[in-house]
């Protein structure tokens, strides 16, 4: 695995000057992944913040070949590119020794929801690519609407905290588990605050033959109503509260990569974000308890599977 020094020395493939927000979790995630690849990368991005923020014509932040075609089809688009690569290799139009890595980026809306079918199809077909979901927990690009990844209780513009209904009423979808159910060779959850873990996972995923998946929590000051300067800290607290466990499933074996010495209460994470303000009121303790209960149950489940073939 590359050291921080080595990573820092690598070419910057994702240039500054893009228009993603201050404190956005996406740029550090993308930069680290591109730095972790030890071969040229071709990428696609689903419609969303990353796409809109990096390629306003005539500018582009991408110093690698890159394509955006639509919202729900990043996995299908990368399937086509990767297949063309194999066709050209077979016909000798690309030299045998040339190795190219294929990466699809999508937000949670483009991955958990509208892009799930395309993702499932591409995973099942076994294309050689890495899918990266930057999960900021809502449709942030269109103005913070709830997605299948939005945490229980969070206020969004389509699940507002009203007088009767207090934020999102449903528990979030466990996408990583859905991906694992495709029996892919490698899938993991990661966080930008833990660069070493994230970089190692990206390197591992890109080295693996077959479809691989990284689900990465991505703080969004705009949608989380959090302080931009606290984004990386917010990602850390998400992991320390076990809201976002860091684990990987490699060839069917689950491994928890980080176990907090002391698991922090979910309130510590919620209080950093305005979207959960209503959950912290004494009269809504039951909702807070429900969220804590979900997190505890999932963490226990993971602990029971740690080191095992799942």
């Amino acid at each position: 695995m590359a050291t921080l020094k080595e990573l820092a020395k690598k070419n910057e493939l994702f240039s500054g000057g893009h228009r993603l927000c201050t404190g956005c979790g996406i740029p550090p995630i993308v930069r680290l992944i591109l730095r972790s690849a030890n071969a040229p990368v071709v990428a696609t991005t689903a419609t969303g913040c990353l796409e809109v923020g990096t390629t306003i014509y005539p500018y582009t932040a991408w110093r690698i070949p890159w394509i955006h075609s639509a919202f729900e089809n990043a996995a299908a688009t990368i399937s086509g590119i990767e297949t063309a690569y194999r066709a050209f290799k077979k016909k000798g139009k690309i030299p045998k020794e040339k190795d190219i890595k294929f990466v699809a980026f999508g937000g949670d809306g483009g991955t958990y929801d509208i892009g799930l079918q395309a993702l499932s199809g591409a995973l099942e077909r076994g294309h050689n690519f890495l899918y990266v979901c930057y999960d900021n927990g809502a449709y942030m690009n269109t103005g913070i609407q709830r997605s299948g990844a939005t945490p229980f209780g969070a206020a969004t513009t389509t699940s507002p905290a009203g007088d009767i209904i207090l934020g999102k009423q449903e528990v979030r979808k466990d996408l990583t588990r859905i991906v694992v159910a495709h029996n892919v060779p490698y899938a993991a959850q990661a966080s930008p605050h833990n660069w070493a873990d994230l970089s190692k996972k990206a390197e591992k995923a890109l080295k693996t033959n077959g479809p691989t998946f990284l689900n990465i929590i991505s703080p969004c000051p705009l949608g989380w109503y959090s302080k931009p300067e606290e984004s990386i800290e917010a990602a850390k607290v998400a992991v320390d509260t076990c809201y976002w466990p860091l684990y990987e499933v490699e060839n069917g074996v689950l491994k928890i990569n980080y176990k907090p010495k002391q698991k922090r209460p979910i309130g510590d994470w919620l209080k950093m974000q305005g979207r959960f303000k209503h959950l912290l009121k004494p009269e809504n303790q039951a909702l807070l308890d429900k969220l804590q209960g979900c997190i505890d149950a999932e963490w226990e489940r993971l602990l029971s599977l740690d080191g095992k073939v799942i």
Binding site: P40, V41, V42, E51, V52, T55, I56, Y57, P58, T60, W62, R63, I64, P65, W66, I67, H68, S69, I81, A84, Y85, F88, I94, I100
Partner: peptide, 14 residues
């Protein structure tokens, strides 16, 4: 897109 020495951006926002 496979010409990695001459990267192009397809599908930029206009």
């Amino acid at each position: 897109l496979l010409d990695t020495d001459n990267p192009v951006t397809y599908g930029a926002m206009t």
